[in-house]
């Protein structure tokens, strides 16, 4: 069965290593913070200028001067630091953030990503996404494998305006985990109960399938 949003987030959290600095985009990526294994520590970076983002506040802790990049009220975790936007993007562009996780409309076999604009339809802007995909050491894209009409989001070539080129190495969808390398998607894991044939049928770009494709394991 296809994974729920929470299950995708759980699989994302398995990628984190002890001591990682991680930036989580809006949506499914943010949910991954709820599933960090108990035996490791990660520190969340919010690009508006907070390293060490804590949970949302109680009514007593509520403070208009404490928000995250999604403009939601948050708290600072123990050991947090707060800084200006140039400093925040210096750590992103300078490759100091270990992991960034973000959503996308499309990804292609060259590691290109489109996530910020649908011409004549959506003109919200890219926020920090272009900086994040250009700067982070490891980027994971989370998304549904196909849109609600069944059209694949894993393409040979992206059709929408790009957010970044040649930068995506790993994709976690509701159906599969894939690596992007050598001009193809490489299937490494499938969601429990999802067949390789279903993944093939919903992957438009070139897909390399090994003989054995293990199912994802959830603790």
């Amino acid at each position: 069965m296809a994974l729920s949003r929470d299950q995708i987030a759980m699989r994302v959290a398995q990628e984190f290593q002890d001591g990682d600095y991680v930036n989580l985009g809006i949506g499914i990526p943010t949910l991954a913070a709820n599933f960090v294994p108990d035996n490791i520590e990660v520190m969340l970076q919010s690009e508006n200028g907070l390293l060490g983002m804590g949970p949302n506040p109680t009514e007593e802790q509520l403070d208009a001067d404490m928000i995250n990049a999604g403009k939601e009220t948050v708290t600072a975790a123990t050991g947090a630091s707060i800084f200006n936007s140039a400093e925040s993007f210096a750590m992103i562009r300078g490759g100091h953030v270990d992991f960034t996780v973000l959503g996308a409309f499309e990804v292609d076999v060259s590691g290109n990503i489109a996530s910020w604009m649908i011409p004549n339809k959506l003109i919200k802007g890219m926020g920090g996404a272009m900086d994040l995909v250009a700067g982070a050491k490891n980027i994971i894209v989370t998304m549904t494998h196909a849109d609600k009409h069944g059209n694949s989001k894993l393409l040979q070539t992206c059709t929408l305006p790009l957010t970044g080129v040649n930068c995506i190495t790993r994709i976690i969808t509701d159906l599969a985990v894939l690596e992007v390398k050598q001009g193809a998607f490489h299937l490494t894991e499938r969601a429990p109960g999802v067949s390789v044939d279903e993944i093939k049928s919903k992957t438009a770009g070139e897909l390399v399938v090994p003989n054995e494709v293990p199912e994802m394991v959830f603790a």
């Binding site: 140039a86 890219m126 926020g127």
Partner: peptide, 11 residues
């Protein structure tokens, strides 16, 4: 509108 990446804008 000139949409500008956030880090580029700060810089």
């Amino acid at each position: 509108v000139e949409l500008t990446p956030q880090g580029t804008l700060a810089e």
